[in-house]
Write a protein that binds this DNA or RNA. Structure first.
Lengths: 237, 237
DNA sequence: GAGTGGTCTAGACCACGCG
DNA sequence: GCGTGGTCTAGACCACTCT
């Protein structure tokens, strides 16, 4: 059961996405919305703040809240959205090849990345992502076994996220992401359809659970021409 | 005069940055903070929510709020921070060369990017950013003259942002950012110290004012080896 | 002057973690 | 069972825009 403000948020989001409210149009005032949904102003304000944070509206003091015409569906790699979620969202013909699936002892690099000791065990999953018949992305996932006891190759073919969140009930709360561009390695060139590029876009993801423990490190290596990252940033006051 | 919750936010931020509260330590509970600052709980919660959004803390239900050990100063290109702000923050030896400074009629590409018509006039500023003696970044700014009447080459040598925000009092509210990797152009290779790279990282920025009008389009072209983007993302519920 | 969003207060009940 | 953060309410005053 969602809270009231989440329900209201979702309703307004679908109104915007289904063009029941058009870009640049004004939303009803907070007072009107209070009456419409029969809640307090604070509840309305929570819903509107969420809309603002997620780039659906702008609130302008003494004027009202306005729908933005920034296309939300334009976001290929924003936030924490997984490959599975993205490809289903865009209806892409995609395929995942599990190249390697193992339970390993971490080396020094991994111990540092995952902030663990050599007693820990780590799931190592290497996957190749194919879109429209081209091998574009090389994903390397390293997951602390303390948090995910069992994992199968079958799960990796689908979505690890889905398994972790839905089956295990672990809650992912935030991630730190770093994007750099590096020389492509021989491995990159071997495993991907790399044409003549010599650089690769490396996205490192450090993924944290609700209690702020780091449990997964992911390195996502993209062919440069197929990489696109869109971000929506608000100016801190 | 800042509002109470902003003041409290700033105080806690400086406590965290000055290590008066250490990473992984627990903040006082909302109740304690209410008494300490003599404000209502709502005001404390606003301050804590800001801290959470900006990656300083995690709030865990029924346990408390905890300081994160993610280094905030690790963020080279996050949010809307300008080159000037970044280089002073990191004490980098940097230089800005104004390559071109003009008032132009927009071409088709620019009309589309800035969502304007051919009657509009646009400031065109091309700047080369030098760090540690190397020409690393090529910045192309296009600013709708409707919003910024006068601009000088002198201002461009410093910070356009500073001029716009402090002198003109225009408020930047949000930006849409897109990162891609492209083939470097001859212009890139001519104007930058490009060594042997043939790709360039292109960051397109669409910058909006408080009333949601698009007033600036910026294209920032980075030498691939010197590019780094760090992001902090929260999972939407 | 009416209407808007921004801030702030003082209460309330809840679900959850921990001891 | 106590303390925690999450949600919700009902009121208040302010600065600002619109007309």
């Amino acid at each position: 059961m969602d809270s009231k403000y989440i329900t209201i948020y979702n309703e307004i989001v679908s109104n915007i996405e289904n063009k029941l409210i058009n870009p640049n149009e004004k939303l009803p005032s907070e007072n009107d919305l209070m009456q419409k949904y029969e809640v307090s102003r604070d509840t309305i304000r929570k819903a509107l703040n969420l809309l603002e944070q997620n780039g659906y509206i702008v609130k302008i003091k003494a004027r009202g809240s306005f729908v933005l015409d920034i296309n939300k569906f334009d976001f290929p790699v924003s936030g924490l959205t997984s490959f599975k979620e993205l490809s289903t969202k865009f209806n892409l013909k995609s395929k995942t090849i599990v190249q390697e699936f193992d339970l390993i002892n971490p080396d020094d690099y991994l111990m540092k990345q995952l902030n663990i000791s050599k007693e820990n065990r780590v799931w190592k999953v290497i996957r190749i992502r194919e879109i429209d018949g081209q091998k574009i992305i090389l994903d390397k996932d390293f997951i602390n076994k303390d948090y995910v006891q069992s994992l199968t190759e079958e799960i990796c073919k689908n979505s690890i996220y889905e398994y972790i969140e839905k089956k295990l009930g672990l809650k992912i709360s935030f991630a730190k992401k770093e994007i750099t561009v590096q020389k492509a390695t021989d491995e990159d060139k071997k495993l991907l359809d790399f044409e003549n590029y010599d650089m690769i876009v490396v996205v490192k993801n450090y993924i944290y659970l609700e209690d702020a423990t780091l449990f997964q490190y992911t390195e996502s290596r993209h062919r440069p021409d197929k990489f696109r990252f869109v971000d929506f940033a608000r100016r801190q006051q």
